[in-house]
Amino acid sequence: MAAVIDKEKCNACGICVRICPTDVYYGSKAKEIPVVTYPEECWHCNACVHDCPQNAIHLRIPLTMQVAYKS
């Protein structure tokens, strides 16, 4: 669940760690690929996805949050 980082694309700039409103990236180290320490606290707001200069993050929407639609 929550943010998933593409390690190939990530340049460890730390923007996502700096801006995440709920601090799911708590404990990430400077100049290293961020770690998602608290995935259950992700609000799925897309801030990190939007602000990532490398387009390296996407959200995996948990099964409990998937929108119910007509097929």
Binding site: H44, C45, N46, V49, H50, H58, L59, I61, Q66, V67, A68, Y69, K70, S71
Partner: peptide, 23 residues
């Protein structure tokens, strides 16, 4: 209006919400 994650969900699902009413 901060709804990009929902639009992204439909996109990844391969579903167009105009064609598929959602609850």
């Amino acid at each position: 209006e901060a709804n990009t994650p929902i639009l992204d969900f439909f996109k990844e699902e391969g579903v167009d919400p105009k064609e598929h009413p959602f609850e």
